[in-house]
Write a protein that binds this DNA or RNA. Structure first.
Lengths: 197, 197
DNA sequence: GTCTATAAACCGATAGAC
DNA sequence: GTCTATCGGTTTATAGAC
């Protein structure tokens, strides 16, 4: 590490700023919603000059997609860790634990992916995007795989019920501003998993 | 009905236009979302000149509240009809039927109240509104009352699970653009009601 | 009461200096 | 690559004619 390197490595800066912008977009868009968030909001949260954002992302839509890919990345990391558990039932319980662990955030801003889906659904007119649907689809598929390994009937249907319960409890928790809904419904989901043969 | 009456009854027009604006607001805000809907959009849907809207509603926020009260009115009308059924279990099944009957709308735009709650949650900063929470609370209370009349344990918890399931299946149905999710999960809810003692 | 014209503010995106 | 200044379009809300 020489002094000259500090001035000669603006290459690393670009990727760094881009990453900061992606993380800021994921957080701010979740908290404020897509339509109420300005480019300036995201730039400020990322500590990047406002006009400079357009060097990294040509449109606001690209920033939204970047935020979505951040959420995907977090989901993959979580399921990746859970995959190391031997029992598929324990993997699903671990997923519930992770959801309940985020209860304060859920009670204030809802599920990041779910609330983003609600907003993007109303953006698409004719040519719908559906990229957010793919993220949810990926979660549904992973959950379904766990049910399949458990050997239960209709793993696809159970996956819909399971993920739907999470989306529903997140929405109610935020609408009523009550994180304990997450705790209560999470415990119910865990108990439900134990009743499945 | 004389010709003179047509020109001499502007009194009825005011309430009429106001009602048209409320209905249009409820529909358009549901379809397009709060932030993407302009006053002009609502005025056009209500067949009222754009600038005239402000005579009836001072701000856009008042139009949002008006839309919310429309949803409340529809909900009260529905539960009012269901209250005429003798069996509380049948009332809840009737509620599920009504939800499934709206599956095409749900698959495209989600639950009117639920999606509105998601958007309004992100509007409130410090002084939160929570008026949408009261509408959901009213539904939760009605459902809880049915469970209580059924004599089951923990009617409040069951109500959260029941309404949460509806919100979750509406969100998944719209995110995946699949109305059959409403049919499938609705049938599951009905079966679940039958398993309760 | 009804409607038009427009003010005032805001935001996404761009041009261009450095 | 980085940043500033600003354009152009849109939207809320109001002023005021009818």
């Amino acid at each position: 590490m020489t002094d000259s390197m500090d001035s000669r490595r603006p290459r690393a800066k670009a990727a760094d700023k881009r990453q900061r912008l992606m993380a800021a977009a994921a957080r701010v868009l979740h908290e404020q919603g897509v339509e109420r968030t300005t480019i300036a909001d995201i730039a400020q949260a990322a500590d990047v000059p406002a006009g400079n954002v357009y060097y990294y992302f040509k449109t606001k839509g690209e920033l939204v997609e970047a935020a979505l890919s951040e959420h995907t990345r977090h989901l993959e990391a979580l399921t990746g860790r859970l995959d190391q558990l031997a029992d598929p039932r324990e993997r699903l319980k671990g997923l519930v634990d992770a959801w309940v662990g985020q209860r304060d955030t859920a009670a204030r801003y809802g599920c990041p992916t779910g609330t983003l889906a609600v907003e993007l659904d109303k953006r698409a007119e004719g040519g719908l995007d559906l990229s957010v649907g793919q993220v949810i689809r990926r979660l549904l598929d992973w959950v379904e795989q766990q049910f399949r390994e458990m050997g239960v009937d209709d793993p696809g249907g159970l996956s819909l019920t399971f993920v739907g319960a999470y989306q529903g409890m997140s929405l109610l928790s935020s609408a009523l501003r009550d994180p304990e809904i997450m705790t209560r419904e999470g415990a119910r989901l865990v108990h439900w998993l134990d009743t499945l043969t």
